[in-house]
Amino acid sequence: MNNYRIGLWIGVALVALASLAPLGLNDYQQSFLLQVFLVIALAQAWNLISGMTGYVSFGHAAFFGVGAYASALLLTWGFPWWLAVLKSAGIAALLAVPLGFLTLRLRGPYFAIAMLGLNEVGRIVATLWVSVTHGGTGLTLSPELLPSLDVKYFTMFGLALGATLLVAWIHRSRFGLELRAIREDEEAAEMVGVNTTLNKVIAFVLSALIPGAVGAVYVMYTSYINPSSAFEHARNIEMIVVVLFGGSGTVWGPIIGAGTVMVLREMLWAQFPAAHLAALGVLLLVVVLYLPGGLVSILRDRQRSRPDARSGESP
């Protein structure tokens, strides 16, 4: 049985578990899982642009914020929740098209910094555009506009699953191969016929679509949004750390990373958000310095050292 098969069966088992979980869990536990799915979905989105394409974004939460605001407004205007999610994702993706063309011309640190700036611009716009966003006061949603916890749970689960399947599919596809070639050496990729700009923008738009939808569901979960919770810096940090810790550019890395980080948070430092973030900082340092491939690389290296490892590696 090769790695792919094993992964597939573990995946099926996890999906079954997550689908049945609401039957045996209380609201608190269900909310916790919902947050795990939220982190997985965001991490997969970041993985798509930064892990696979190599364009490290320090501000992908910007699209989450856009989705959250769009959804809050759509709900108050009377749209049903599912339409609000779809439209919010669409708005984030549409916004990503011009932004992608502009920012993806920048390489390496310039892109990372520009994205950091983008997130801040999002926060400033949300603060200053008082007539729509109510500025720093934020938007509060009345409970009758919101779907039940089960609906939110399954929607978030669907987003995490969808994002993972998208990454898995891209990983095995020609598109994914081209993205990885761009990550390795963009000029050389262009020189062997890869339209790097188009590929990057598509990856960027997909990676904006997911946080847009996640933000939309998030605001239904919290029923409140303001500039600093929509464009929260900690969310960027979490995305990056989770992916790097699990293993960037892989399908399983973000899931393993999100699971580990969230469980640690719940068990060890749920009461101290600052300690949680400081711990994420330490984790980031440790991973960057000592474990560049993330947790997944430990598993994979064990596989590689087996004598038959090479035969299972056809693309």
Binding site: V56, F58, G108, P109, A112, I237, I240, L244, L277, A278, L280, G281, V282, L283, L284, L285, V288, L289, P292
Partner: peptide, 14 residues
């Protein structure tokens, strides 16, 4: 460069 960027980012978070 991204390695050092991420390392100093970690330092800043801490």
């Amino acid at each position: 460069m991204l390695t050092s960027l991420l390392a100093t980012y970690g330092l800043s978070i801490i």
